[in-house]
């Protein structure tokens, strides 16, 4: 019998570590760690956040415009409140053509893993469609879903679930392709 020694397994997986991960999971407070939650994402996707008081900065977008919208249980329909926030996002993006955005969709933990991945994608896509309807070029927007993998709030009750059912617009450099 031939066993792969552990060292070989480790070598094989270390090669995967260097990836450009755009995830930010939603800051909501204007302080985005460009390193992401795991210290990944320090590649091309990272962007200088600037100052909240500078209306041209991603930090201003996150905090003053609002980078996040929330959803009703199981739904991807945009609420009136969400539409107001997204209208502001579209206005800012239209005025700042050097940036593009990745829209992250998230679900609460009350669902199965793979279904929630699909549900998060539906939410991210609803945001993307709205921004496009407001004049933002589709080429500047990309979507990703984290399903229930990255909750913002960790309690297991409706106030936390409501915070976790969200889509976050993460600003990155580049006018898209």
């Amino acid at each position: 019998m031939n066993f792969a020694p552990k060292a070989v397994i480790l070598l094989a997986v270390l090669g995967l570590a260097a990836c450009n991960n755009p995830d930010k999971y939603g800051s909501g407070n204007g302080v985005v760690d460009p390193g992401g939650a795991y210290g990944s994402g320090t590649g091309d996707g990272s962007v200088s956040q600037g100052s909240i008081s500078d209306p041209n900065s991603p930090a201003y977008f996150n905090a003053a415009v609002g980078d996040m919208v929330h959803f009703v249980v199981d739904q991807s329909t945009l609420t009136d409140e969400a539409r107001n926030i997204l209208a502001g996002q579209a206005k800012w993006l239209n005025a700042h053509g050097k940036y593009s955005a990745i829209i992250e969709g998230h679900a609460d933990e009350q669902g199965t893993r793979e279904y929630n991945l699909a549900l998060g994608a539906r939410r991210a896509s609803a945001v993307q469609e709205f921004l496009i309807s407001q004049g933002v070029a589709g080429s500047r927007l990309r979507t990703v879903s984290y399903g229930k993998e990255r909750p913002l709030a960790v309690c297991s009750s409706e106030d936390c679930y409501a915070k976790n059912r969200r889509a976050v617009t993460v600003i990155s450099l580049g006018a898209g392709s």
Binding site: I9, L14, N21
Partner: peptide
């Protein structure tokens, strides 16, 4: 137990 990946990224299912 043997690990097949490191923990640098999310893996599922």
């Amino acid at each position: 137990v043997n690990y097949l990946t490191d923990s640098s990224t999310i893996v599922l299912a």
